[in-house]
């Protein structure tokens, strides 16, 4: 099962020609094939149906299939472009393309904006920002008082919300990231440049994993 079987004949839903994907992403054809290998591994970890289910995504991220996380949920939803509850291999490769070191910074800024626009209103609102800070605190050992959280959210919001209308729009987000480039550091995965080294071939990788 998976994106591409060794025979190359049977393909699962969402299969896309690696050559076409390579044209539309920063990846080479061999890098796309290596990502297919990674996809096959992730998509068969719980249900071997060639699709990444949320539990499989959580298992890969946290080594725990039941660990839900606000941010992992948002990433999953953004990768699930068709919004059918699973990540298909084409969606996986296209989405990871944004995280490639050579992907346009504008794409990374846009992706991060959509990530943080929890309710998809086209704006990052103060309540959303506070919700994300609280979610982050819940998953870490960091304990901050309600007052401190308010101060952090207020300060960040006043810095980013240039127009002062109580919400951060895309243009304001872009300017804020340009002033604070470290905010999108996690939108780049240096590992993607070495993906063919990690997954050199379909056959070899499956043998190594045994």
């Amino acid at each position: 099962m998976g994106c591409m079987c060794s025979s190359g004949i049977k393909h699962t839903p969402g299969y896309e020609d690696p050559a076409l994907l390579a044209k539309e992403t920063p990846f080479t054809v061999s890098e796309v094939e290596s990502l297919y290998e990674l996809f096959n591994k992730l998509s068969s970890s719980i249900i071997d149906d060639g699709l990444i289910h949320k539990e499989e995504f959580q298992l890969a991220l946290f080594r725990n299939r039941n660990k839900s996380n606000l941010f992992a949920d948002r990433i999953f939803d953004l990768f699930d472009v068709k919004r059918n509850g699973v990540i298909e291999c084409g969606e996986f490769v296209r989405s990871l393309g944004v995280f490639h070191p050579n992907a346009p910074v504008e794409d990374k800024i846009e992706f991060a904006f959509r990530l943080y626009d929890l309710r998809q209103t086209g704006f990052i609102e103060r309540e959303e920002l506070k919700e994300m800070v609280i979610a982050l605190l819940h998953e870490s050992d960091l304990v901050l008082s309600e007052d401190v959280i308010e101060v952090i959210v207020d300060k960040t919001f006043s810095d980013a919300d240039i127009k002062g209308d109580g919400k951060i729009d895309k243009e304001e987000w872009k300017q804020f990231v340009e002033k604070n480039p470290s905010l999108i550091k996690n939108m780049t995965l240096p590992y993607l440049k070495d993906i063919t080294l990690a997954f050199p071939s379909f056959v070899l990788t499956s043998e190594l994993e045994d």
Partner: peptide
Amino acid sequence: SQPVTMNAFELISKSQGLNLSSLFEK
């Protein structure tokens, strides 16, 4: 560093849920 000087987005970006490098770990 004082908590009150933290950038909220900087804080959020440290979430484990946003660290996709875990996907590549064997």
